[in-house]
Simulated assay, not measured.
Amino acid sequence: MKRNTILVATMAVVTLGTTTQSCVALATSSVGLAVLKQILLGGITKGLNIFSDKNSFLANQLIEAALPQQLKDVNNTLQKLGLNSLVQKEKEYIAQAATFTVDVSRPILTNAVNSLTAEDAARIVQGGSGTATQILREKTSEQLMAAIAPKVDAKLNEFGLVSTLNQALAGSNLLGTLLGGQSSNALTGGISKFASQQMVNGLFNIIQNHEQQNSATILNSLNSIK
């Protein structure tokens, strides 16, 4: 019971962002770091489980919210042309490609969590809820992009996404214009880049949401033992 009380108190300190010296000491202890890592690992597992299932990926609003403006513009143009079914196909291709990024994303994120330091914990205490995810993003976002973009590119090439979109736009250069005036040879890479950005940002949205939801749970638990 005593250990559970310590864990709850430590987790509350981490997520509430209390800045007293005693709270910093508690959060940066071995117990505090273990709890912090548990929170982040839970969010990572939740996010990657969603990525592992195409339908879960498509239904997740946090992933949808991470859609880059360039792909929004493409989809809006297609919808104005009455090609809603093609927009859905594009989203399905991206969701299917996301399932192939899980195995490379997991070790990057897990290693970053396991390497968190007492200094990171102190920053989280001072920054409050959401700071843990922000630190994880800073440590891994570039590495994640570098790791998953080639897989996304390969899969979207395999699915023929760009050729499908170009055919729907009647052979015009409208797709290239929407993606910043790229040449036809660079279009697949452009779409793959933006799809990869959506995946990385969507994953961090899920992790942060998990962190924030966990904060509320911690507060309730803390109140229950008063």
Rank of each mutant, 00 (worst) to 15 (best):
Q61N: 10
Q88N: 06
L81T: 01
V87C: 03
L71D: 06
L67F: 09
A66S: 13
N75H: 09
Q88W: 02
N84K: 10
L67Q: 12
S85A: 07
V87T: 12
G82Q: 07
N75E: 07
L67E: 12
Q88C: 04
L62W: 07
N75M: 12
Q61T: 08
D73Y: 03
L86P: 12
Q61L: 08
A65L: 13
N60G: 14
N84T: 10
L62T: 04
P68Y: 00
L78Y: 12
V87P: 03
Q69F: 02
D73V: 02
A66V: 11
L78E: 01
G82D: 11
L83I: 00
D73H: 03
N60R: 12
A65T: 04
A65G: 04
A65C: 07
A66E: 11
D73G: 04
Q79W: 01
L86G: 05
Q79E: 11
L67M: 09
L81V: 00
P68Q: 03
L81S: 08
L78P: 01
Q79N: 10
K72N: 01
V74M: 03
L67V: 07
G82S: 14
N75I: 05
I63R: 13
L83D: 02
K80V: 01
L71S: 06
L78N: 02
N76P: 02
K72W: 06
D73Q: 07
V87H: 01
I63Q: 08
V74E: 01
K80N: 09
Q61I: 01
L67T: 14
Q79D: 04
A66H: 11
I63A: 12
L83M: 14
V87S: 02
L83Y: 14
Q70L: 03
K80C: 06
K80D: 07
T77I: 05
G82R: 09
N76C: 00
L81Q: 09
S85C: 01
T77S: 07
L86Y: 08
Q61D: 15
L71F: 04
D73L: 09
A59K: 09
N84A: 04
N84I: 06
Q69H: 07
L67S: 05
A66Y: 14
V87I: 05
T77H: 15
V87W: 05
N84Q: 07
D73M: 06
L83E: 11
L67K: 14
N84S: 11
V87K: 00
D73T: 08
L71N: 06
S85I: 01
P68T: 08
L62D: 14
D73C: 03
K80R: 14
V74T: 13
L71K: 02
V87E: 00
